[in-house]
Amino acid sequence: MTEFGFIDSIVRRFAALPANGFEGIGDDCAILPLGDGTALLFTADLLTEGVHFLREATSARELGRKALAVNLSDVAAMGGRPVATLLSLALPEGVSEAWAQEFMEGYHELSERYGVALIGGDTTRSSAGITINVTALGRADEAHVKRRSDARPGDVIFVAGELGASGAGLRDILAGHYGTPLAAQHRNPAPQVEEGQWLGARREVHAMMDLSDGLASDIRHILDRSEVGAQVELTRIPVAEGADLQTAACGGEDYKLLLTADGTRAEALAAAYRERFGGPLYPVGRITTAHELVWLRNGTPETLDWHGFEHFKKR
């Protein structure tokens, strides 16, 4: 069983049920138009001990921040503003009250930074390991909501930051090197909340999502949903210091925004972004009509069987 095969089977099973006004599975968030030109956005993510984090390598405060950050990133990827969350925790025997309080301090820090209310959730006991589930709610003007399905041939593909630091940091952690700068970056993702809202308001931006599983996997979601292809130039992928090209393309958990924009307005968009945020949008390729992903090296096609993180793959 693959993750996306399982998701496809869920979509088919529930297809005949009423949508009740929701635009559901297929994007970073589900969308509920409110009828006044605005929409609510809903997303949920799990973090499971031993899969998403090692307790001995991650402080409770860092874990609290990360649990929220990955959900805020989903809202940002839709062009929305996060407004509230629900938090559910399953804690095993032996987790101290001090650990739980420190976790909530980290969660509160990021909630306070972005003005996000904690409005509910659940707590329970776990028989093995910590499990964290966060549901985040966002708001956006309907016209500003960005979907994976809106990429168009001729669009320039951008990433909003350097890639590979998180994947390289995970490699350090798995090798027992918990104190490296890259390991710290892996444990402390920074959701591009302001950037997502700004890009959502730009009409020349068509499709958008966040990079959670790696460029090599996540770009395919846009291609599949938009029924297009892409050419990605390997030499243009921005590789973070300490990472390598394959980790930048496949490592995952960078939580930078991936977007496509009108090719005739892409340079102006990148200039306006730099003026607003002080850093670049990196053009890494183009959307095509070919219905396939082609890797290029200095303009020449290169055959690479590169994929990002696969949740159900045996390791």
Score class of each variant (00 low, 15 high):
Asp172Asn: 10
Arg203Met: 06
Ala243Met: 08
Leu234Arg: 04
Leu234Tyr: 04
Arg171Ala: 13
Val228Thr: 12
Asp262Lys: 10
Arg148His: 10
Gly242Leu: 06
Leu281Tyr: 04
Leu245Pro: 04
Phe158Lys: 05
Arg148Glu: 06
Asp155Glu: 13
Ile219Phe: 07
Val205His: 04
Arg203Glu: 14
Arg225Pro: 00
Ala240Tyr: 01
Asp172Ser: 06
Pro153Gln: 11
Ala272Thr: 07
Arg225His: 14
Cys250Ile: 10
Gly200Pro: 01
Ala261Ser: 14
Ala270Ser: 15
Gly285Glu: 03
Leu259Tyr: 04
Ala207Ile: 07
Asp218Val: 15
Ser149Val: 05
Leu234Pro: 08
Ala184Cys: 06
Leu163Cys: 10
Asp224Phe: 13
Arg152Glu: 14
His206Met: 03
Asp172Trp: 02
Gly179Met: 04
Gly278Asn: 09
Val205Thr: 07
Leu182Phe: 05
Asp254Leu: 09
Ala160Cys: 14
Ala216Met: 11
Ser226Asn: 08
Gly167Ser: 11
Gly242Lys: 06
Asp150His: 12
Trp198Ala: 04
Ala151Leu: 08
His186Arg: 13
Ile222Trp: 01
Ala270Cys: 11
Glu194Gln: 14
Ala175Glu: 13
Met209Cys: 15
Pro238Phe: 08
Gly154Pro: 11
Arg220Phe: 09
Gly169Ser: 08
Ile157Val: 15
Arg236Pro: 05
Gly164Asn: 07
Asp218Ala: 07
Val239Asn: 04
Asn188His: 07
Gly279Gln: 15
Gln231Lys: 14
Leu245Tyr: 05
Met209Gln: 12
Ala207Asp: 00
Arg148Thr: 11
Arg265Phe: 00
Val205Asn: 01
Ala243Arg: 01
Arg225Gly: 05
Ala248Cys: 13
Ile173Leu: 12
Ala271Leu: 12
Ile222Gln: 00
Gly154Tyr: 09
Leu182Ile: 09
Thr264Met: 12
His177Asp: 13
Gly179Tyr: 06
Val145Cys: 03
Arg203Thr: 15
Ile173Arg: 02
Ala216Gly: 10
Leu174Phe: 06
Arg148Ala: 08
Val228Ile: 13
Asp172Arg: 03
Ala168Met: 08
Ala216Ile: 14
Gln231Phe: 08
Ala190Arg: 14
